Amino acid sequence: MASDLELCAMRQASTLAVLGLGTTSPNPPVGCVILDQRGTVVGAGSLRRKGEPHAEAHALDAAGGAARGGTTVVTLELCNHVGVTPACRHELIDAGISRVVIAVIDPTSRGDGPAAMLIAAGIEVETDVLRGEALTVLEPWLTRRCAVGRS
Rank of each mutant, 00 (worst) to 15 (best):
G132P: 00
E77Y: 10
A147Q: 13
G83P: 12
T24E: 00
T15R: 03
E124P: 01
Q12I: 10
V129H: 06
G20W: 00
V74H: 09
G39F: 06
N27C: 14
L19G: 03
G20A: 05
N80A: 14
D94F: 01
H81P: 00
A66H: 13
T127A: 13
K50L: 11
A87Q: 11
A121G: 09
T85I: 13
I105R: 14
A134F: 01
D61P: 01
S3A: 01
W141Y: 15
A120P: 05
L35Q: 09
V73H: 02
G43L: 05
K50I: 07
R48H: 11
E56A: 15
A120I: 02
V82G: 10
Q12E: 14
L76D: 02
P29R: 02
L7R: 15
V18D: 01
G39Q: 11
E91T: 12
R150I: 07
L19R: 06
T85Y: 02
G83R: 12
I97L: 05
N80R: 13
I105T: 09
G69V: 04
N27D: 15
R110E: 02
T40M: 06
A2F: 03
A103Y: 00
G149Q: 12
E52P: 04
C146H: 06
M1C: 10
E52N: 06
A13D: 05
P26L: 07
A134E: 08
S151E: 08
A147H: 13
D94W: 02
T136R: 14
R89S: 02
H54G: 15
T108N: 14
